[in-house]
Nucleic acid binder design. Structure first.
Lengths: 157, 157
DNA sequence: GTGACTGCAAATGGTTTGCACAAAA
DNA sequence: TTTTGTGCAAACCATTTGCAGTCAC
């Protein structure tokens, strides 16, 4: 099954409607799966295919997608919320590399924390349902070439 | 050397002054090392010992402490920035457990990621300077007793 | 006196909300 | 026709900034 009909089912299951606006927004997210778009960025992109769309609808739709565990709301410290599509099983199984030279944000599509989560359960009596792992640093290639920083880094973590 | 004179030296090294306001703020942070205070919380607490203090000064001081790597600015998704004292070596060596039942935020004062950082370097050519690891879930004790959720959880990660 | 620092109030900017209208069930 | 969703504008609220006054060297 393709992703959009999969998502359509999730909407239906909770008695939500997949309106044209919502579908347009979901499509933008699917088309930019690699990125971590902000609300404003989604808004700009959707405007191309749906010029009449209101900003509030983007906010409300992304919140809804969050509730349905289709996307994940994250904050990388640049002052705006960013949204990340979850996998097909709606799990959270990736980590981030954030380069402080070029500003790139790469995903590691793998779960390296299985063992550590067992350790948390064992040593702290804490049952993990979700996690977040970001690495901040620099790519070796960036360090060598000294490529320019793309955007201001408010350095929040 | 105690912490406050240590911090005092860091200020002096960068030609910053440790004013009474700044010292009062730092003391609040030291007194509440376990917590992750928001600006508003720091403001309220400092008001007890320094009633005349302005909110903007708290913002400016915390930003300064961030720049000196004395504290770390973090965002746990509740809409406000929170600040965490770094260790004496000003490294970032701890992880977080966030309970979605009781809202507690516990620190794991240990660095479990040494091996993974080597792996990132090896497999991605990425040199890690800092990281962030949060686990979200529930304490076994919370699950059993069903203790009440302390605060609204905007579920941002 | 010059430069760093503070307090206050105003401005900023991302996000939320109230409400009237539109579409769907 | 009752419910759900949308667009617009206003409200909200954490944070930042401009500025005049204060303090330290």
């Amino acid at each position: 099954m393709d992703q959009i009909s999969n998502i359509s089912q999730l909407f239906a299951a909770q008695k939500y409607k997949l309106t044209p606006q919502r579908e347009a927004i979901v499509n933008i997210l699917l088309d930019n799966e690699k990125d971590h778009l902000s609300v404003e960025e989604v808004y700009m992109l959707v405007k191309n295919s749906y010029p009449h769309l209101g900003l509030a609808t983007v906010y409300r739709t992304l919140e809804l997608l969050c509730e349905l565990h289709i996307v994940e709301k994250m904050n990388f410290g640049d002052g705006v919320a960013r949204y990340d599509l979850r996998g097909n099983d709606h799990s959270h199984m990736h980590h981030h590399l954030i380069c402080s030279v070029c500003g790139r944000l790469e995903e590691i599509k793998d779960d390296w924390l299985v063992e550590l989560e067992k350790r948390v359960e064992r040593e702290y009596g804490f049952n993990v349902t979700d996690h977040r792992l970001d690495f901040k640093g620099t790519y070796d290639t960036c360090k060598r070439t000294g490529c320019k920083k793309e955007k201001a880094n408010k350095a929040v973590s």
